Computed example of a mutant assay.
Amino acid sequence: MSDKPSSWQIWSGFFAVILVLALLAGFALLRGGRQLADLQATHQAEPVQRLLYVILNGERRIVPESKRLQLSLDMQSAVDEEQDKLLQRMEQQVDAAVDTAFAPVHDHVADFADWYYSLTGEYMRYAHAIGGDMGEYMQQRLRETVFLPAALETNLDNLLSDSNIRLSREMKQSGDRLASRLQLVIAAGSWPVRSGEPMIGDSLDLDQMFATSLQVTGKDLNRQVVSILAATGAGVVVAKGLGLAVAKKTLTKVAATKSFHVASALLAKLAAKSAIKGGGALAGAGTGAAICSPAGPAALVCGAVGGLIAWLAVDKAVIELDEALNRKVFVADIHAAIDAQQQQLKSALKKAYAKALSKGFVQVKQSARTLAVPAGKFTPADSAFRSEDPVGYEK
């Protein structure tokens, strides 16, 4: 038997090697092609992103996730700037409106001082001092000569109503300006949705947000402001109660001044004038009796008339002296008390309106923050906008 391989064995081995090599080459070709395709796809295609659809001024735009953070920061800056401007205008309007309402009050203080430094005022205070209600009487005269002619209650009620209407209108205007500004901001980091293209992803409807946040009526704003004032102890429980509440507080503050208390205490003044009046009245009576002595019994009447004239003359002289020495301080104290209540009202109104404005802007700010929320953690607009319940209104 020969040890040499047969031709069949040689050819079998040859074709086996060829087959194995062909299989390896084919496998390498398929696997390499797959790897090349994956590599090309990695370099050519952008990563899949979760898109945000923003609706503003009736236009739908797509915001990629990579643009959300910067867009959120730009929008928050625009919102803060608009709110600050509106707040400043509101504070200026409150200052001007309150000053206008109180100006007639200051103008009529001189009328009260004229009454106070008069014989009529002097004797009416004496009469009420005897009756034990002089302090109340002076407050009544202050109201009759200063607050009622100045129409303070009516002016303040109108102030509140007019301010609410004006601020309501300006809030809407702020919303319109903000929408126009945000449209430019959003356009810089987004692209429009093509007609007929389905919206797949998160959606933020800014048109709906503006319609429910900064577009409040003067009546709604009035309810919020009155309720806030009531909660701060301003004494206002209804819209038409601001004037009455402030007038009462102002009157009380004036009545608490040092000059008013001194004016209410007549004992010192009566004691000071008694000696002068005693001598003056006796001298007047003696002079009258001497002049009328030829008339016999009528001399007694003449003496009495002379004494009365002397009494009134002394009273008038003392009142004029008192006015010359003290009127300036007396009037200044009343003005200072009115000014104090005036500033207190300004502060209360500014705080109330600032809180009402904050409630109006809360949805806009929430929308701005929502833009920065990462994919998968987006809060729908209708849920994000749920804030604390509106301030109650006490009827």
Rank of each mutant, 00 (worst) to 15 (best):
F147N: 04
E144Y: 10
G135I: 13
L119K: 15
D111V: 05
A110Q: 15
K172F: 14
G175F: 04
L182H: 06
M124I: 05
N158T: 05
S168L: 02
A129I: 14
G121Q: 00
L142I: 07
T120L: 10
M134P: 05
H128P: 00
R166M: 04
P149E: 11
M124F: 12
Y117V: 02
M124K: 04
L152M: 01
T145H: 14
S161W: 12
E170T: 02
Y126W: 13
L152P: 06
L160A: 07
R177Q: 15
Q139A: 04
R181L: 13
G132F: 01
D107T: 10
V146T: 14
E122W: 07
Y137S: 07
L156Y: 08
A129L: 04
S163I: 01
I165R: 13
H128N: 13
Q173S: 12
Y126G: 11
L142E: 07
R177N: 06
L156E: 09
Q139Y: 09
I130F: 00
I165T: 10
D111N: 03
G175V: 02
Y117G: 02
W115H: 12
Y116M: 08
E122T: 09
H108V: 00
M171I: 01
Q183V: 10
Y117S: 02
L142N: 01
L156H: 01
L119N: 11
Y123T: 08
